[in-house]
Design a binder for these strands. Structure first.
Lengths: 210, 210, 210, 210
DNA sequence: TATGAATGAGAATTCATTCAT
DNA sequence: TATGAATGAATTCTCATTCAT
């Protein structure tokens, strides 16, 4: 059950396989996102992917495995965006902005999916649960490092970088949460970027008078 | 599998009813928390509460309703703690500290339960989903008001109170998240209060040099 | 999941339970016998027993378990008949006759069931397979003992009792087989008892001239 | 696992076909024998035969047909051995010995397969069931004839040859059964030939004193 | 001719809910 | 009021068979 990652090849066969597997993942994203793990029916995912029920089982050994693979796929996409975008800018301020930008952009696209990820509750048994934790930890460390560098460059004052990373990630997630949940009711879909700007301002300057 | 050792209460009728309903809620808290909504079995909740399976349906019309009632109960408890404790202190700083303190305390006690709430995904369909949002909104407003007052008292500089409230709630939830998820792996159960202190420091002073 | 074997009590409750369990076993005998293990559907067994599909699972944890319990039940019945009837007579000749009589009577009643038992092939996983062997072994020993006694009383000449027991059991089973298989085609349903008489005669006197 | 050494035919085309068909049969013997009809998977049989899944269907129209063809193949082999060996000797005694010898030898080689045959239960529905009966009947008649001849030659006393044939076949099958089932537990794999000798002795002389 | 990816009919099992006692 | 035995709707997963290549 190894799926070759070298998708450079375009020959019909590989393409076809990759195609189907990916179509099922996409179907899964759609259906899991909108029904949650338990209410999602394999049959519906298959239909969504335009394949037969049995075909899903050719590529994933169980509903749970499908869920986990999809989960990993999404996570990876987010991680990619995060890393890539942040590497494009230099200053701490710019990086902070990028973090919000990327997160907002990502969540707007994968809104429903993210809710499930947040939940952490489908039977993403142990393994995935652990991966989730690790990813989080990694992100914290990533941000910590960015903070350290910024401190080194004297862009920001010396702070407990781990605590600071938490504050940032917390703000990130919360703004994200706004999108996620408030988004269901898309009444006032206000400008998240603007909102984020305010948040960044506070993070930078704090509440107290200088 | 031994149940109900404490059937001590005295008023036979009313007490008995109240008692049973509450015992079922408690059973639900225990079981839902540890299994999640879908894997929790009514039978187990009933057993946990020391009542018959049918009895659950005397008090709640369905599994879903039971879940929602339990949910509301927990939320209310949190809200109570929050309001009560915050009203005991005056300064913004103290209030901020209390927020973290209460949240940490609450989460440590209701850790598992909170995971489900966070998830937002049990079939707390629509109705409860909305309640969750409203509660969140209320909490944001509550914090906003506290911020406004602090600004009025010139304890803190004038900031976009809504954005600021989000930062705070975000930090609150994230520190909470740490407890929730990291807590599963109780390796390094570090001092959350200390951690919170650092976070508060950053929130107050920001990242930038004064 | 223990089912009390003291069925002496006649109170409504126990009776009811025993009744249902037994009805399911009976349904199983009917359906398994006529369809074999794999083609038998739980739903049909339930219908046959006049209970709901789910009810079957209140009494037996799986199709396999149901099969095994039924199997044991049949075996026990045969064993009971065997022991009981043989103890009624004294001479070797009479015992031999009884063996055939009981076996024929039993098979005529449980014909279809016995086919499955003979098969030894349903997924009577290991455990039951072993039981089957043991039962067989026990029966061989039982017959051996009868032979020994007969030899002791000088009713028959001294023979290798184990080999002799095999010959008897083989004949028993083969005459049985005739019923089992030929019985499906009930063309010439000839008199098994008479047939058995001939077989007994040969067993006693052998093929050779005296 | 070496089969068909007699590859007398030379025409490439036919050879290839015959070859593949036989390989599939052999795969079927292996897999059916060890899994039983229902648990055996066509895919595994194909793999065992070293052909593609689809190819199986080029030679056999269904799983059932494959099973039946394999069944017939085995039966035929047994029959061949039986006839061939018995024709080599003259006396009744020698023939009796051969019967046991051949049967034991055959069962030792096709042990697992034979269990399925005995079972008679795979969905060898009707058709094959009938064949099984007929084969049995034929064997009974075959043995009857041998008995008649022996009686004619006054080697043995006049007996009901049909009943006698049953006794013999019963003993044959029972000794066989010992191999089949006891064989699973290969504790005391005793000498079946010796055992058979004892059985033959009893068959010849009977239980009674001369 | 040979293949194996794709398929969907079919069955065991679970469990919320009902209701007779 | 309290109970738990009974139920059947609902869902995952399997695997014989097909058919495009």
């Amino acid at each position: 059950m190894n799926y070759n990652s070298d998708k450079g090849k375009n020959d019909d066969h590989d393409m076809h396989l990759a195609d189907k597997r990916q179509r099922i993942i996409n179907g899964a994203i759609t259906v899991f996102a909108c029904k949650g793990f338990y209410k999602a029916k394999i049959e519906e995912i298959a239909a969504q992917a335009g394949v037969g029920k049995g075909t899903v089982y050719e590529y994933f050994s169980s509903k749970k495995e499908l869920f986990q693979e999809m989960f990993l796929y999404i996570e990876e996409k987010y991680e990619e965006m995060f890393q890539q975008e942040l590497s494009l800018v230099d200053t701490f301020y710019a990086k902070l902005q990028k973090m919000f930008e990327v997160t907002i952009r990502f969540l707007e696209r994968h809104k429903e999916m993210a809710r499930i990820l947040l939940a952490g509750y489908p039977p993403v048994s142990e393994d995935i649960q652990r991966v989730l934790l690790e990813k989080n930890q990694l992100k914290l460390e990533e941000i910590s490092k960015i903070l350290e560098e910024a401190i080194g460059r004297q862009e920001i004052r010396p702070v407990d970088t781990f605590a600071a990373a938490q504050v940032i990630l917390g703000a990130l997630f919360f703004v994200g949460g706004q999108i996620l949940f408030a988004g269901t009711e898309n009444k006032k879909k206000f400008d998240y970027d603007e909102q984020a700007q305010e948040v960044i301002d506070i993070l930078l300057k704090g509440f107290l008078y200088p």
